[in-house]
Simulated scan of single mutants.
Amino acid sequence: MASFYGVKGKNLLYQYKDFLSDFKIWNQKAHAKQWLIFPENIGKRLSIDETSLSNGELYTVLTNKAANGRKGTIVAMVAGTKAETVIAIIEKIPLKQRNLVNEITLDMAGNMGLIAKKCFPKAIQVTDRFHVQKLATEALQEIRIKHRWKAIDQENEAMEQAKSSKTKYEPKILTNGDTLKQLLARSRYFLYKNKSKWSQNQKERADLLFNLYPDIHKAYNLTQDLRNIFENTTDKIIAFTRLAKWHEKVNQSGFKSFNTISRTITNHYQNILNYFDNRSTNASAESFNAKIKAFRSQFRGVRNIEFFLFRLTNIYA
Rank of each mutant, 00 (worst) to 15 (best):
N99F: 09
W149Q: 14
Y189Q: 09
A136E: 01
S47D: 14
K118Q: 14
I315Y: 03
W246T: 09
S262T: 04
K71E: 04
I90N: 02
A88G: 05
R227W: 06
Q34M: 05
L58G: 15
L184E: 02
G56I: 11
K291W: 00
H31S: 08
T51S: 08
K17H: 00
F258M: 06
P94G: 00
V75N: 00
A285P: 11
Q161S: 14
I152S: 07
G254C: 06
Y269F: 03
F295Y: 09
F288D: 01
F190M: 11
W26F: 03
A136C: 11
I238F: 03
L53H: 06
K17I: 02
A109N: 13
A30F: 01
F23L: 02
K118Y: 03
C119W: 00
F308D: 06
A139F: 04
T264Y: 09
N99K: 15
A317Q: 03
K29R: 15
S47Q: 10
S297K: 11
I145T: 13
Q97N: 07
K293N: 12
N194S: 13
K134C: 00
G177K: 11
F19T: 02
V132F: 09
L13I: 13
K293Q: 12
A185P: 04
N289T: 05
W198S: 07
L53W: 08
M159P: 01
G80Y: 00
D178M: 05
I90V: 13
R242P: 07
I272A: 05
K172Q: 12
E57K: 11
V75K: 00
P171D: 14
K96W: 04
A185V: 08
D107I: 11
